[in-house]
């Protein structure tokens, strides 16, 4: 528990435990529990899965199987900026495959990974419901449409710059 407190703070951990206490009474609620964990912590690390396993009696091996089966769960912390690039049919036929390759190259990470400075994480989405703007990507809820590989990289660079100047402003 100490490691969990250290990772996420006592309040957040206790809030999760309270929810877990309720949810575990409902049979077949593992997905709901994992949803809570994903939302609350941004990812579901070993310590959280171990806690869920102890509380529910479901072996960690099974929980890990579920977590890695569904793309909405993650075992590594998401970046400060979460990029989801649409690889749905409409976006894909309009070249989102090339955008993915370009982003991977530019950020130096693969799908499902986070840059070492913790700034960006990259995941592939299946249709964001904005097919008219294809190909699209979404970063922290904001949609960027009609992209080309180069434009996608420009968006990333713009965010980097903004983030820097914001940080500088905070220091002042």
């Amino acid at each position: 528990m100490e490691q969990l407190y250290e990772l996420f703070g006592i309040d957040r951990v206790e809030e999760f435990r309270a929810k877990l206490e309720e949810l575990k009474k409902v049979p077949g609620s593992m997905i709901s529990i994992l949803n809570e964990a994903q939302e609350m912590f941004g990812y579901i690390p070993f310590q959280v899965q171990e806690l869920i396993s102890k509380e529910t009696g479901v072996p960690l091996t099974e929980i890990f199987g579920i977590v890695t089966f569904y793309s909405r769960f993650s075992i590594i912390p998401a970046g400060k900026y979460k990029i989801s690039l649409c690889l749905g049919t409409a976006c894909y036929v309009r070249g989102s495959g090339q955008i993915l390759e370009k982003l991977k190259e530019n950020l130096g990470i693969n799908e499902g990974e986070t840059t070492s400075d913790g700034m960006f994480s990259l995941e592939a989405a299946r249709c964001l419901g904005a097919c008219a703007l294809a190909p699209v990507m979404m970063i922290n809820g904001e949609v960027y449409g009609r992209l080309t590989p180069d434009e996608a990289v420009k968006v990333i660079q713009r965010i980097k710059k903004q983030d820097l100047s914001q940080a500088a402003a905070e220091v002042e």
Binding site: P59, L60, T61, E62, F64, G65, T68, F69, Y70
Partner: peptide, 9 residues
């Protein structure tokens, strides 16, 4: 024992 399971997809 639950040492191994199926992971990923």
């Amino acid at each position: 024992v639950f040492a191994i399971g199926a992971v990923n997809r």
